[in-house]
Amino acid sequence: MIEYIKGELTEVTPAYAVVEAHGVGYGLNISLNTYSGIQNKKEVKLYAFESIREDAHVLFGFASKQEREMFMLLITVSGVGANTARMILSAMSAAELCNVISTGNEKMLKTVKGIGLRTAQRIIVDLKDKIATSAIAEEMPAGIVVQAAAVNNEVRDEAIGALTMLGFAPAPSAKVVSAILSDNPQLPVEQVVKLALKQIK
């Protein structure tokens, strides 16, 4: 098992990062919260999770152990795969998710694209006790300050690219992202994607 990858961040989008370590470039799927934590950095350390399927070996990277732990808990829930778990951790931070689960806030979970009432209830029922016993909530670092991106078009293109990588069609993604940016032109890309995840059909 790969515990973490530490090296130079050679490429990063809101959904994907490439870290070069000892001449090897590792491609890792990341959440928006990890993107917030590593953008504008040269050297990074990402905690890894390897998803091994018949057709592919996929690496997921996390800026903190706590986020990886939440991801690993989420994928133990029936009906929640790796991409859905990443979607949830893109819509809210690991600390926010802990709070949502521990307070039984299924309405908040349902705002995440692809999470219906049954899945939200299952996540809460399955993970409430696990979170309490793991003491993961107390380990959460303070929220990361998000820096506003300067170029609107760049933000738009990155947001659409991230949504496409998360499995959404480019056309509806572009429509939702454009609408969000016309109302809030100063939003950073990760916030645009978070809002889009709640609105996109």
Rank of each mutant, 00 (worst) to 15 (best):
D183W: 02
V189W: 04
M140T: 07
V192W: 01
P172N: 04
N153V: 09
L166K: 05
D183L: 02
K175I: 01
V177I: 03
V146R: 07
F168N: 05
V193N: 00
K175G: 00
L187Y: 12
A149K: 15
S182K: 11
P170I: 05
A196Y: 02
E139S: 13
V145F: 12
S178P: 00
P172V: 03
I144D: 08
V145G: 11
N152I: 13
A137V: 08
E154R: 15
A179H: 06
E158G: 12
Q191E: 13
I180N: 01
I180Q: 00
E138Q: 12
P172E: 04
N152M: 11
E158P: 09
D183K: 08
E190G: 01
A171M: 12
K198Y: 06
Q186P: 03
R156H: 13
V192D: 05
P141A: 13
R156E: 05
A159T: 06
I144L: 08
M165I: 14
A159N: 05
Q191M: 13
P170Q: 09
D157P: 11
E158Y: 10
K198L: 05
E138P: 02
A169C: 10
Q186N: 13
A150N: 14
A135C: 06
M165K: 13
P188G: 06
Q147C: 08
A149R: 15
N152R: 15
D183C: 02
L163S: 02
L187F: 14
L166R: 08
P188A: 07
R156Q: 12
A162D: 03
A179G: 11
V193H: 01
A169Y: 14
G167W: 07
Q191F: 09
A159V: 07
A169N: 15
A149F: 15
F168E: 04
S178W: 00
I144E: 12
L163Q: 03
A149Q: 15
I160C: 05
A169K: 15
Q147R: 15
K175Y: 00
Q191N: 13
I136W: 00
P185C: 05
P188C: 04
M165N: 15
R156D: 00
T164R: 12
K194Y: 02
V176I: 09
K194M: 07
M140F: 08
Q199C: 03
A162M: 03
L195A: 15
N184W: 08
A148K: 12
N184Y: 12
A149T: 12
A135N: 11
V192N: 05
R156A: 07
L166T: 09
A159I: 05
V189D: 06
D157N: 13
S178Y: 00
A162W: 01
E190D: 12
Q199E: 07
E138R: 09
K175E: 03
L166W: 06
E158K: 14
A142G: 12
A149E: 14
P170D: 05
A135G: 10
V193Q: 01
Q199G: 04
E158T: 11
K194S: 08
A148E: 12
K198H: 10
D157M: 14
P185Y: 03
I136S: 01
A179N: 10
P185K: 03
L181M: 10
I144K: 11
D157K: 14
S173L: 04
Q191V: 13
A150S: 14
A137S: 10
K175M: 02
N152K: 15
